[in-house]
Write a protein that binds this DNA or RNA. Structure first.
Length: 278
DNA sequence: AATGACAACAACCGCCAGTCC
DNA sequence: GGGACTGGCGGTTGTTGTCAT
């Protein structure tokens, strides 16, 4: 019989998401959740594959995402975790609240890899490069595409050095993580962020993104409780009060489905402040 | 100003593990 | 037990922005 494709390829849109599609997806998920990603595009009125919707949500639209480049502390943490976990980006991302595996993977490939090579450190083994290796490695990364596709997931661990102890390490990492974790994910990030202004910039970026997404379109009105049952047709208004009051509601929504419950009052207030300014 | 090279990042693809029936 | 299905992961590619010439 064969496996069904994850979506009907015919009529499914690909490529960059438009603001309109983002709005539809965010509104749908915030209103109804995602019982099943496969059903989301249909119910939300999107001509997208469910997988694409999930990716867009987790990598870009999720409100708890930190925007902007990784700061020094985060970068160091990524390097440290990569040395222990290899290319297991989702595991690494799990240790950096507000960061996605895709984001970290991209940052690794475009920034950190080069940085380590420049410092004479092999980004694969995390050990000092021999001089001849360093020169050839350096050339290789001049074209990051060539180096990107090194397919090192399976061969990543140097001589099984890391692989063998991964299980134990993960247990240790969990303990390590709890050392700087508390009940508030946003403050988790702050715990290892030493650059306050950078942190502020990130907050503003996030707020800006949300204000852009939600507030800049006068035709867009946040769904109220009376219209939550209606799929497809969403009305929006430009009132910042109307547009932001739902954030407070969603704060108590529970974090199982969206992670929204993890927002601190500060996060919400930052969005509200930004909305007031607009 | 035009254009080519490179960098950065968003998005897609294929595979795999887990779950359900 | 095994096939169907879904969600998630990691690798790869496409697109856009930036800079140098």
């Amino acid at each position: 019989m064969g496996r069904q494709p994850c979506c009907d390829k015919l009529g499914v849109k690909k490529g960059p998401w438009t603001a309109e599609e983002d709005k539809k997806l965010v509104t749908f998920i915030l209103t109804h959740g995602h019982c099943c990603w496969r059903a989301v595009p249909k119910l939300a009125g999107l001509r997208r594959c469910g997988k694409s919707c999930r990716l867009r949500w987790t990598n870009y639209l999720r409100p708890d995402l930190k925007r902007g480049l990784l700061n020094e502390a985060e970068e160091q943490l990524v390097i440290d975790l990569h040395a222990r976990l290899g290319n297991r980006w989702s595991k690494i991302a799990a240790r950096l609240p507000g960061r996605t595996d895709n984001e970290i993977k991209n940052h690794w490939n475009t920034h950190i890899k080069k940085k380590l090579l420049k410092m004479g450190i092999d980004p694969v083994t995390h050990e000092p490069l021999r001089k001849d290796e360093a020169s050839t490695e350096g050339q290789a990364t001049s074209d990051h595409r060539a180096n990107n596709g090194d397919g090192d997931h399976d061969h990543h661990q140097p001589a099984g050095k890391l692989e063998a102890s991964n299980v134990q390490q993960e247990k240790q990492e969990t303990c390590d993580y709890h050392m700087f974790s508390n009940d508030n994910p946003s403050s988790q990030a702050e715990n290892y962020s030493t650059d306050e202004s950078r942190s502020l910039d990130d907050d503003l970026l996030m707020s800006y993104m949300w204000s852009e997404t939600f507030l800049d379109d006068t035709s867009w009105k946040f769904p109220d409780t009376t219209t939550k049952e209606e799929y497809g047709e969403f009305g929006f208004s430009s009132s910042s009060d109307e547009n932001t009051s739902w954030l407070m509601d969603y704060q108590d929504f529970g974090d199982g489905e969206f992670g929204l419950g993890c927002f601190s009052k500060n996060d919400i207030n930052a969005v509200l402040d930004m909305a007031d300014k607009l």
